[in-house]
Design a protein around this nucleic acid. Sequence first.
RNA 1: GGGCAAGUGGCGGAAUUGGUAUACGCGGCAGACUUAAAAUCUGCUUCCUUUACCGGAUUAUGGGUUCGAGUCCCAUCUUGCCCACCA
Length: 794
Amino acid sequence: MSHYEPLKIEEKWQKRWEEEKPFAAKDNDKRPKMYLAEMFPYPSGAGLHVGHVRNFSIVDCLARFYTQQEMNVLRPFGYDTFGLPAENYAIKTGIAPQDVTITNIDNFRKQAKRLGYAIDWDREVNTSDPNYYKWTQWCFLQLFKKGLAYQKESYQWWCPVDQTVLANEQVENGCCWRCGHEVEKKKMKQWFFKITAYADELLDEIDSLDWPEKIKVMQKNWIGRSEGAEVDFQIAESGGKITVFTTRPDTIFGSTFMVLAPENELIDELVNDDTREAVEKYCKQALKKSEIERQENKEKTGVFTGSYVINPATGKEMPVWVADYVLSGYGTGAVMGVPACDERDYQFATKFELPIVKVIEKPENSTDDSPCYAGEGEMVNSGPFSGKQSSEVREQINDWLEQQGIGHKKVTYRMRDWLISRQRYWGCPIPIAYDKKGNPHAIPEDQLPVMLPKIDDYKPDSTGRSALAKCDEFLKVTINGEEMTRETDTLDGYACSSWYLWRYTDPHNDKAAWDKKIVNYWAPLDVYCGGDHAVAHLLYVRFWCKFFADEGYLGFREPIKRLLYNGYINAPDGKKMSKSKGNVIDPLDVIDQGYGADTLRTYELFIGPYDQKATWSTEAIGGVYRFMNRCWTLVFDSKLNTEDKNIAYRHKTIKKVTEDICRANFNTAVAAMMEYVNELYKNGANKEDLIVLGKILKPFAPHLASEMLEELGSDDIWPKWDEKLLVEDEIEMVVQVNGKLRGRIMIPADDAEDKDKLEAYARADEKVKTFTDGKDIIKVIVIPKTHLVNIVVK
RNA sequence: GGGCAAGUGGCGGAAUUGGUAUACGCGGCAGACUUAAAAUCUGCUUCCUUUACCGGAUUAUGGGUUCGAGUCCCAUCUUGCCCACCA
């Protein structure tokens, strides 16, 4: 007697898939296309972890499901290889990032193949391969040509440990996303992508996406659109002006002071000999404070500049202050203080004894007794606008500002432009060179790629430039006969991952980043799956998609139709897996222990809803292994039924599993297959029962299912169900008395639709009678759909 | 501080439009097979009462709507996530 040997079966099928390449996608095929991908991994030296397996198995389950439904499926794979870990490793060990990356990719590929994924291996991409980053540079140049890649000198987040600037999206609670060290503010000239040019479209199209609500809300918050007005305030005695942004122009009559951010460049002109010293000291301190300190201490601080501006509505003088509660990067870096209508301005005014003028009356029924009221209401002390409602005054003031030529409506976003230059070696070189005057020039497209040179010393230099600054042969370049110096910054890794979904469709093209016809056949992506990058990556891809659509390179404006955002897996102790805690589960160990890849994959899909976090259980995986064994035994070690006893159950299971996979309810799909197998053990199975089992099991456990289908002599085409065959001859009806379950009665299925018959069965039941006898029946509710009868008695 | 989501057995979790709460799995208990153990197979397993039947209670807590509520509404508590001086 033989038994289930997963490792043997899996080796056999993996070898066959390697030779026959059944997962090769065919461009421009007539079958309906289906394009799926996971967020490509960073191939670390540690190899696959169970989180990767969950992520990849979700995509694989869908890819195989659609393949079995005879669709033309594209399911590629790639590696996101630039970044700090490889560079820091190089600094520590002297091993070139190029070499480590190749080793790690080879290991990742080998491991992914042991999980039996249905990947088209001829389409691999690797972002640090010159054949790939040549086109990343090309993408940069398209943005540069249109003015959407530009340089700007301003205060930036700087990580003193990693010695590079960071994008807003890479600062988490005032700390570097990579090393966790507090970030500093540093004034530097940096490269940006003008993502704000697409802010409105990025916001407006979110609602049309089949994405988790959570992610949509995060992106909306991140973009943070607010409508308001910009208003100019004349500086008293100087003739200059200061512009503020406000969402509440209706409160302008209540503005009694103005506040500038410490970074604001106008401050220099506003100070006088008496105030200069104190203001400079304050600004210096504010800039030195870490972002955490600035956020934690909400006690208002500030200093008077010595200057005044004129409130255009009241004509009164308002003192101009500097305070760090005003942010430099948002709006104009200056606000009009309206202490009666804004909590922060109120705190500031009380602390520094600035006048408070009430301009909005609280509604009479308001229970709020704070002296500061930010809501809507009737205007007071507001000249011609007094007596009107604040919400309507808002529009009228906007018109008035415009007529006076001192203001206009304005939309402002919380999102800033995307800072993309990094002072690090291991990234895609920015294809720019500077002439003698320091003006930037594009490297001509026929000189791409700008190769990242192999070097010995990877450390950034002391001036805050990448190690490339020390590489003379890299620096020198001649463009149109003019000697120039290359840019030594490299691109943020997120730039490299902003277009790989299109490269996948045409990965070996050496004439273009992608072919328009091919990309428009496959893309946009039908399903994208990942558990990270809710804002950054997913926003950047959308931005590039819109840009390249505008340039005519893409025929669609949203890159991802459906997003599955999977949860992470914790260690059995409930904590995050980490090497230092010694609680890491290595998926390859699980396979080699004897469970095999099929059990591992199925277990990770069974562990709970795919979008929730889960805790690894070393016991529960045994249950899935038992299930695999029971499937194997049914096909290879049991007698077949000759009758067809399980028709209804079989069709019910096909329906349930099909619908569950479509809804991404993988855990309940597995549960349904387990129930089906339990039923087959009870009743015995015929050949058709087992063929169906093999087919529906294949997206989860492809090796075992292939083995079963081969034994049964069947193809793997996805089975269909027949609604008519779902119904058993007899069904159970349920009787309630006053909403309480009092009886279950087996009745012929033919009677299930007949309301009168259902009621008659219910009234005739002996057990039900004991609860209704001697009582008045007020009402009988009959629900044929659930074959339920509720008798209401008094 | 603001916003959103969630709270179901010993545990992970199911319940698709308001209609049989606790599917499936783990763990536990019992039995079969075995000299024995493992594996496998078969039952039982929300709680209270009961030998058993019957009955009662139960989806964080309290109220409401309804013939009927895990599901809808209100309040409270707890947890998680996101944002957090964004004018």
